[in-house]
């Protein structure tokens, strides 16, 4: 693969793959490392892949495999720290108006609850949820990336959303008490 072609590919997909990796590992440095490792793999095996129709799906698969390796190495099947995203969200500047602040607080609270709820999903549920909601991939692409059937991808997404709703409902109940 020539370096010009690789550079173009890198600049086009690296930010997107970073976001995907970040949502999985929730850590800037680790997500960047995953992107770097992914592009090293892409560089080394691009000629083998050249014939496949969807380069993007292939790259997502590489990133997901690296994320899974990351958790395997750290023996973290469930995500433990939600600090990075919460801190990042909390650091955002909010408008000074009281009502807007209240709404923003509620919104922030919901985001934090959602983050905690997302941590309680299984790795597969979380992966499907992320790929569907954030990356807006089709179930067909998700099934290819995760090497599962389309039906399984749909069922997993359904289970993930239902579980999130239940967990968030419980958390809201506890907050009202």
């Amino acid at each position: 693969m020539d370096s010009k072609e690789f550079e173009q590919l890198y600049k086009r997909y690296a930010p997107m793959l970073y976001r995907t990796a970040y949502r999985m590992v929730k850590n800037d440095a680790d997500a960047l490392d995953i992107v770097q490792d992914a592009f090293i793999r892409i560089f080394n095996s691009f000629t083998k892949f050249r014939n496949e129709a969807n380069v993007q799906t292939w790259m997502y698969r590489i990133v997901m495999n690296l994320c899974y390796d990351y958790f395997r190495k750290r023996k973290k099947v469930l995500f433990v720290s939600e600090r990075d995203i919460s801190d990042y969200d909390n650091n955002q500047q909010l408008p000074s108006d009281d009502n807007v602040e209240k709404i923003a607080d509620l919104e922030n609270q919901r985001k934090q609850n959602l983050q905690i709820a997302l941590d309680k999903l299984t790795l597969r549920q979380r992966t499907v949820f992320n790929l569907r909601i954030y990356d807006e991939l089709s179930y067909e692409d998700i099934s290819k990336i995760m090497n599962i059937k389309i039906g399984t991808a749909k069922a997993t997404f359904f289970q993930a959303v239902e579980k999130l709703k239940i967990i968030m409902k419980e958390m809201e109940k506890n907050e009202l008490r």
């Binding site: 990042y88 959602l114 954030y134 999130l164």
Partner: peptide, 14 residues
């Protein structure tokens, strides 16, 4: 469901 999905979509990353 809509609120939850919208909330998820609004989550920021660096």
């Amino acid at each position: 469901t809509v609120e939850m999905v919208e909330s998820a979509r609004k989550m920021k990353i660096p």
